[in-house]
Simulated assay, not measured.
Amino acid sequence: MDLQLAGKTVLITGASQGIGAGLARAFAQEQCSLVLVARSEDKLQSLAQEIARQYKVDAQIIAVDLTAPGVIDKVLEQGSHADILINNAGAIPGGNLWDVDAPKWREGWELKVMCYIDMCRAFYRHMRERGHGVILNNIGNGGEMYDFDYIAGTAGNAALMAFTRALGGRSLQHGIRVLGVNPGPVATERIERILRARAQTTFGDPEQYGQLLKKLPLGRAAHVEEVADLFVFLASPRSAYTSGAIFTVDGGITSNKALA
């Protein structure tokens, strides 16, 4: 299937590792130019070189802390030509109401929740002036699975879901599509850290985290590519009638409301 994305420019935040790096590779396969944003210049440089070598596409890097004052304006200045914006940066800490103190809670929300909102505000204006654009927010199924032990993330993701639906509900009037993706557990270093912490709490041994993986659909976390490919389709003209919607890719975890 020709996704009609060749020649488009995609700006991805949190692009240096995990899902972000997977997104970069997936869009490079479609012959998109890339603007890769993250804190680690070394990781970004390595990924950009890999992509240029393997897919023969241009990959610009912007190594910044998106929470620093004035940085989003800098990113906009260098990446305002992007046809597609993917907000992917940030990881809200796990834990219950007492595990996540006020500073940690605010720090997590500053990067993921407020940064997504601020990036949308900045790039939407330019996309509206051009009359076209796509914004994809990588959110997480914690916004649908109200989790006592992931309370800051549950609340933050739910806020981003509402924000995405509200913005995307009218954005087609301006030629812009705004969508959210809610991955469940994905096989990244971050999910391993979370599962190790839960295994310590549950079993008293972080090395038992594999027992938690067995409870997931297919007995594993999602592969990064299984999530990235959905983003690519949603960003494409093949998905032209979608906006203001959230797409959950978690193997049915959210839908399985059974008690056992």
Rank of each mutant, 00 (worst) to 15 (best):
I139P: 00
L230W: 08
I139V: 12
L216G: 12
T13R: 02
W98M: 12
L3N: 05
I51G: 09
A260R: 12
A24S: 14
G7A: 05
L230T: 07
G204Q: 07
A21Q: 05
P69W: 14
A162F: 02
A260D: 08
N138L: 12
R177H: 01
D118E: 14
R190Q: 15
V35N: 04
A63C: 10
V134W: 03
G153A: 12
G244W: 10
K214M: 05
F247T: 07
E110N: 13
E110G: 02
D73G: 13
E207Y: 08
N138S: 13
H81F: 07
N87G: 01
K214S: 13
A222H: 06
R170F: 10
L97V: 14
I194T: 11
Y241A: 12
A222K: 06
V37P: 00
Q200L: 15
E30F: 08
V71E: 06
K214W: 04
G169Y: 09
L5P: 00
G20F: 06
H174W: 10
W109G: 01
Q31C: 02
Y150I: 10
R193E: 15
H81Q: 15
L34W: 09
G18C: 07
G133N: 00
P69Y: 13
F123A: 08
T242Y: 14
M127L: 10
E110W: 00
D83W: 03
A68G: 04
A26M: 04
R177L: 01
G153M: 11
A24W: 04
D149G: 07
N87S: 11
D118F: 03
A24G: 06
Q45E: 15
M145A: 08
